[in-house]
Design a protein around this nucleic acid. Structure first.
Lengths: 337, 337
DNA sequence: GTGAAAGCGCTAACAT
DNA sequence: ATGTTAGCGCTTTCAC
């Protein structure tokens, strides 16, 4: 009786057709060097002829390895993550893996949900801009292979764009323009980067003789810009650092609406150099970084340690250089009235 | 002997601990109503206590259903797809499924590669802006569950934003501003929408007494804008319709660089109303549509027909309404010199 | 180098 | 309503 036509051929079909055992087919497919060359070629030819495709599920069951990675971002619609997503996707594919994308919508609960839900069907996680607490991240890192982007936690591999040095660059730029005070429009309370940036702004501003003020938190989105701009104006700010470009662009818009000139009346700086930062008006001065590279590296970190269960070396924490893209939203401090 | 601590508990562990058969555990988990309420509660409690998590792989092997969908887009970094991605992701998750994202980089080969590679581990595909030929799409639709976005192929379910009617809106807008000719800066040769739009532009422009011209193709990205703008200027155009907003924004930039005023010297229109279209300078007149909704619907279409092998009704082809977002990049036709 | 056979964790007949 | 059991398609000892 012939194979029934509708079904996808399995290694049994190939084995029978080739006159060998299923184990030989399996080996020919997965460990080519552990089988006689002629046998292998024959098996492969038969497989080809039958239109055999490996069944990833069946392959994954015994081994527990799915060749799949998950990437969680806090907001898929934030252009900031585009580069990260693309980089991670490319590197994942280049390594023969598949990428699952998860949107965690700024929620630490959704984040751990994702991990919980996908834990069984994924070989590891890349989490970008995690909103989870350090302890929770460490706990997850104990159960799953994990790499972080834009977040550092002891003992967990991560890749960062150097926003600490970048923040210093921003402040020096502002100081060189004669600003004597600076306002930070903060990101979400849960945001690790927001806390970090404020720390650096506070200490560095003082070193440079500037007065730092923090306002917020504001939603890190364009819609958060109106409130942020109003708050900055209310403070009589001459220089404002927004938590990210989305917020900065929203501010620019509100400022324009209120007739406040940028940078004549107030300078505005953002973070990330997202799509649009170079063509908003005025074009935004912002901290740029190699985020696509970050995505790629995070995947490498994850896959690199795949050989052993236990990591001998301490988890790598990569820091990528950032640079300030100076455009037209920053200028000399206005003369005091 | 106690269960070994390191391993994830399986239904066997739960069954033994609860004093029932594995099939009962399985039923309690998957078909709650096919088991005695008390038994079910007991089983569930034990599972909970043991920290049991279902193994999606093992579940998928017998049934062949992975509760996973794949979304392929032609370019993950194109903001146009953000809405689609987000919508699809939400609806997928809401349906208890997981979403895999694939970037096909404008290549029909990569597209079918993806399908080929993921075919075994996914319950269906949503393909946005497919670059494949109709025949190939039909063939894939025969082997896999498939839904299209921004593409129509007979017999394949799809959801579109009405760019035909939208194109008519654009032309009427331009005609009402006194333009007597219009240039279409075409998208990729493989792009189905590009061909469709040109058809509509050509026929409608004539109805409205305008002279249509097509230039290109151009890469549908900001970097394509310089060549497109130069070409448009070369033609002495007073009105230009770019294949998408990315291209339009690139044109705006080049036009500004060359000292050509928009819209005084030339009007520019785009498609998609992407992030940034409202804050570039000048803000772009563009065809807007509910793309997030499109993403959601495509997933619904895919999952909706999941009950039967065969579709009794013809595949649904949903068309969503579009509307023209009129901003400052379009204005009255310049007086002939 | 190759074959036989026992799982991987779950589902789904089929019995009871 | 619940238990028994035979797979799902592949990998992987363990023999030969």
């Amino acid at each position: 009786m012939a194979r029934d036509a509708g079904r996808r051929p399995t290694i049994y079909d190939v084995a029978k057709e080739a006159g060998v055992a299923t184990s030989t087919v399996s080996r020919a497919l997965a460990n080519p060097d552990r089988v006689n060359e002629r046998t292998r070629e024959h098996v492969l030819a038969v497989a080809e002829r039958l239109g055999y495709r490996i069944n990833p599920l069946a392959r994954a069951l015994p081994s527990g390895r799915t060749q799949t990675l998950a990437l969680c971002v806090s907001d898929v619609t934030n252009p900031h993550f585009f580069g990260i997503i693309r980089g991670a996707e490319q590197q994942t594919r280049a390594s023969g893996y598949t990428l699952i994308l998860g949107d965690t919508e700024e929620s630490p609960e959704l984040e751990s949900n994702h991990v919980e839900r996908l834990g069984g069907s994924v070989d590891g996680f890349v989490i970008a801009a995690s909103r989870m607490a350090d302890a929770e991240i460490r706990e997850l890192a104990g159960k799953h292979r994990l790499a972080l982007i834009s977040r550092q936690v002891d003992g967990v591999p991560s890749v960062m764009v150097d926003h600490e040095d970048g923040t210093r660059q921003i402040l020096e730029h502002l100081a060189s323009l004669g600003h004597t005070s600076v306002i930070y429009l903060a990101g979400p309370r849960r945001s690790w980067t927001a806390a970090k940036r404020w720390q650096v702004i506070r200490s560095t501003a003082r070193q440079l003789g500037m007065t730092p003020t923090r306002l917020g938190p504001f939603p890190p989105a364009v819609r958060g810009g109106a409130a942020a701009a109003d708050a900055a104006i209310g403070q009589g700010a001459t220089a404002a650092i927004a938590h990210n470009d989305l917020l900065a662009i929203g501010m620019l818009r509100r400022l324009a609406g209120r007739g406040v000139r940028v940078p004549a009346d107030i300078s505005v700086v953002g973070y990330d150099d997202i799509f649009g930062a170079d063509f908003c008006s005025p074009p935004l001065t912002t901290l740029a970084g190699p985020f696509e590279e970050a995505g790629r590296l995070a995947v490498d970190l994850l896959l690199g340690s795949r050989d052993g269960r236990t990591r001998a070396r301490p988890a790598s924490q990569v820091v990528l250089p950032s640079h300030l893209a100076i455009r037209e939203s920053t200028g000399p401090a206005p003369r005091p009235r």
